[in-house]
């Protein structure tokens, strides 16, 4: 294991930003794993820390096959994490909306360009990502449907689902998208936590990355088989919104089955305590995403269901 500073930026009033990379194995750039890019991505940081520890052990045991180098960058924006912010503290910009960056540009564009310079050229790029909607997901792998991508590779992580995302204009500035433009196969892994640590789903994420690296011939490692992944398109997901605002009481969570007409959640009058609205399942399906906030707004998307194709 080699620990080194892969990017540095001078700060006026606090410690300089130091982005640390851990590399394992030698030779060709095989796989790169990137953790927390936002200040609330504590679970993503934790997953990488566990991965660094495990890869260190595996390397000592000679389990990294020849001519394969793995780079892990556990955190990029810990300066935000250290002051309780989500984005770059001095200008509130989101580093994962600034790729490919510009080494002569604005501060966070320089960070993005410096990171991309270090993580490019790998065969596989894996980002531990978070979603902007607060809620719980079934752990899954996401790929951008850019035409460069081979969706079946995503199934090798052995998580339950692989979601193919059609890129929106703002997606073009993410690390995932820019990796793919440079012919790195890029994957984003979503676990069901962000600002808190869920050890169980973190373990699952670490295992899925080790499984993928093993299946690609980068590691010699005995991992259990995981799931047989289903490939989903966004159009396979059915969004259920809340018809009114108030206190949100959820009846189902990610992974639960729902039948057409089942009550998925209730909305309670915030002052008077009675149920003012019931949210029914519009289809037979499986809960893929569930709103977690105890409060809900009118029209807010509170569930995403995977429609059952057969019963």
């Amino acid at each position: 294991m080699i620990k080194e500073t892969v990017f540095e930026l001078a700060s006026p009033y606090r410690n300089d930003l130091r982005v640390t990379g851990y590399s394992f194995g030698k030779g060709a750039k095989a796989a790169c794993i990137v953790g927390a890019m936002r200040g609330n991505e504590v679970q993503q940081l934790y997953v990488c820390s566990q991965l660094v520890q495990t890869l260190g052990d595996l390397e000592k045991r000679g389990a990294i096959t020849g001519n394969n180098r793995i780079l892990v960058i556990p955190s990029i924006n810990h300066q935000a994490m250290n002051v309780g912010k989500r984005f770059w503290a001095s200008d509130d910009s989101d580093i994962n909306r600034l790729f490919p960056g510009d080494s002569q540009g604005e501060t966070t564009q320089r960070i993005a360009a410096g990171i991309l310079d270090q993580v490019q050229g790998y065969s596989y790029g894996i980002q531990l990502a978070s979603f902007y909607m607060p809620g719980d997901f079934i752990p899954h792998v996401r790929l951008m449907d850019t035409g460069h991508q081979n969706a079946s590779l995503g199934t090798l992580f052995g998580l339950g689902y692989v979601l193919l995302r059609t890129p929106r204009p703002y997606d073009t500035t993410t690390l995932n998208y820019n990796w793919q433009l440079q012919n790195t196969h890029a994957f984003s892994i979503y676990t069901n936590e962000t600002d808190r640590i869920d050890p169980h789903s973190a373990k699952e994420a670490v295992a899925s990355i080790l499984r993928f690296l093993t299946r690609m011939g980068i590691l010699k490692y005995h991992s259990h088989g995981g799931y047989i992944s289903h490939i989903l398109k966004e159009t396979d997901l059915h969004t259920v919104t809340s018809g009114t605002s108030g206190i949100f009481r959820r009846m189902v969570g990610p992974g639960d089955e729902a039948r057409y007409g089942d009550v998925l959640a209730e909305v309670i009058h915030p002052y008077e305590g009675h149920v003012i609205h019931r949210i029914f399942s519009p289809t037979d399906g499986l809960v893929f995403f569930a709103h977690r906030n105890p409060l809900v707004m009118e029209n807010e998307g509170v569930f995403k269901l995977i429609k059952r194709l057969h019963s």
Binding site: T244, S245, G246, P270, Y271, L295, V296, M297, E298, N299
Partner: peptide, 8 residues
């Protein structure tokens, strides 16, 4: 547009 926020 008019959207109901969480509370009142």
């Amino acid at each position: 547009v008019s959207i109901g926020l969480f509370v009142d």
